[in-house]
């Protein structure tokens, strides 16, 4: 079977059009685990996407106040480069992905393509209302993140389509990410939370990982906090913060599995959300 190493998106989607059963390979950190376990055997062509310059790069659109990140940008680059500074929550999430070896190989687009509810970068993309650009031999389309992530390891990708890039708005305000696992390093999220406090828009976004079939937003909690927070200092009164945490927990839809219980996960996302909001106001004071 052929292994293709295209250097343009056009060449890649032509291979996908020619073989609808083709396997897309980016960093390999999800696919190869399945192959090594014998759970998956590529049977058609393999299309390796991480030599496509457009996918390996990112660009800042100053006019739109947005940054477009190529799907094959690695977590290591996000963690150590300017992307982690422009999007601190994404930088924090990147730092919790696997080990240095995994972050060197694993990509943001691969994380999104796998679409595990525990994908570390995904709550950040959801909280920032990312858009996802897809390409096929028929052309390109842009899909909001909430419509792209459909369920457990299910996405809106059509046959013959691939992820080209993810676009994130630059936020004037505060953003943070926190995750619970059994230890500090090399661990899959038992529960994760991203909080974005958009001062210019007076808008709160909260997204939760590992507590539902896909990443969940918390509209009630978001509206409640947007009304109670002091947008100058980002401080929140104690009882308002408690109510916010309760609403976040209520928005989760966790299950009990071999990693944790539904009860623990529901509790944990409330704690993480409250902790993040507290961190926001304490960092504001020190700035």
């Amino acid at each position: 079977m052929p292994v293709h190493l295209p250097d343009t998106v056009d060449a890649a989607v032509a291979h996908l059009a020619a073989d609808p059963s083709a396997t897309l390979l980016a960093g390999g950190t999800d696919l190869m685990v399945e192959v090594n376990d014998g759970h998956r055997r590529p049977s058609g062509d393999v299309v390796v996407v991480n030599r496509i310059a457009e996918l390996r790069s990112w660009r800042r659109d100053a006019a739109a106040r947005a940054v477009t990140i190529g799907a094959a940008v690695s977590y290591r680059e996000i963690e150590t480069g300017p992307l982690g500074e422009m999007f601190p929550a994404l930088g924090e999430a990147a730092r919790t992905v696997g080990s240095p070896q995994i972050r060197n190989a694993g990509t943001l687009g691969g994380n999104l393509g796998t679409c595990s509810p525990a994908g570390d970068g995904l709550p950040v993309l959801a909280a920032l209302d990312a858009t996802v650009e897809l390409a096929s031999s028929h052309g390109r389309r842009v899909v909001p993140i909430g419509e792209f992530m459909v369920g457990v390891k299910r996405t809106a990708l059509a046959p013959g389509e691939m992820i080209v890039s993810i676009t994130l708005p630059l936020i004037d305000g505060w953003q943070g990410y926190a995750k619970v696992g059994v230890r500090n390093a090399m661990v899959i999220a038992v529960a994760s939370t991203c909080v974005v406090l958009d001062r210019a828009q007076r808008r709160v976004a909260v997204a939760l990982g590992s507590v539902g079939p896909t990443i969940l937003r918390c509209p009630e909690a978001e509206h409640d906090l947007a009304a109670s927070i002091d947008w100058e200092t980002l401080r929140v009164a104690g009882e308002d913060l408690e109510r916010f945490a309760t609403l976040v927990s209520a928005a989760s839809r966790p299950i009990t599995d071999h990693r944790s219980t539904a009860e623990y996960r529901r509790h944990a996302v409330g704690v993480l959300a409250r902790r993040l909001v507290r961190r926001a106001s304490s960092e504001e004071v020190t700035v």
């Binding site: 390999g28 190869m32 685990v33």
Partner: peptide, 10 residues
């Protein structure tokens, strides 16, 4: 990288 997660042909 972890060579177990690199498809050799890539």
């Amino acid at each position: 990288v972890c060579s177990c997660l690199v498809m050799a042909a890539s």
